[in-house]
């Protein structure tokens, strides 16, 4: 499922699982984090209520491939602002997925804003793992990485 890169160890996707905005329900984000861990990924898990600027800083520091945002209230409405903030620092290669309760019209709005995928409640474990694994690979390969030479 996850391709091995030309490193000494298998490529381990790094995924930030977080929540922006006002809501704090975390049952969904905890389950997703556990699923991804069990699929061999490294999950950076944060407290809820993150500011967008902090998420950007975290993405840089932790060198993540995918951001998974859980939204059970209405915080997904802020995601387009996160997308803008990521491109402002040249991190548009990082893939963003949103999971939770997202009305249909808003899903289109999020995809338009550059979100790679929206997972609704009831999404199957394997679908989530496969999609995020594939996105992580894509992100790692399209990263305009700094060359150390």
């Amino acid at each position: 499922m996850i391709e091995e890169k030309t490193t000494k160890e298998a490529f381990k996707p790094r995924v930030l699982v977080t929540k922006i905005g006002l809501d704090g329900h975390d049952r969904g984000s905890r389950i997703i984090a556990a699923w991804l861990r069990d699929a061999g990924m490294e999950v950076i898990y944060t407290a809820p209520w993150q500011e967008i600027s902090t998420v950007v800083k975290l993405v840089q520091e932790e060198d993540v491939d995918v951001i998974g945002l859980s939204s059970l209230a209405t915080d997904h409405l802020l995601v387009p602002k996160l997308m803008t903030a990521l491109s402002e620092v040249g991190y548009q290669h990082v893939k963003v997925v949103v999971g939770g309760i997202v009305p249909d019209a808003d899903e289109l709005m999020l995809l338009d804003a550059g979100v790679s995928k929206v997972f609704h409640t009831g999404s199957a474990k394997n679908d989530v793992i496969e999609a995020i694994g594939a996105l992580a690979n894509k992100a790692r390969n399209s990263s305009s990485s700094i060359t150390f030479n």
Binding site: K12, A33, R37, D38, I44, Y45, T46, A47, K57
Partner: peptide, 22 residues
């Protein structure tokens, strides 16, 4: 810690460092 079974991990130390991580 990494999971010895899957090799994956949940890295949650930032939860308690939220006051300064920004």
């Amino acid at each position: 810690p990494s999971s010895p079974l899957s090799g994956g991990a949940i890295l949650g130390d930032r939860i308690r460092m939220a006051a300064h991580e920004h």
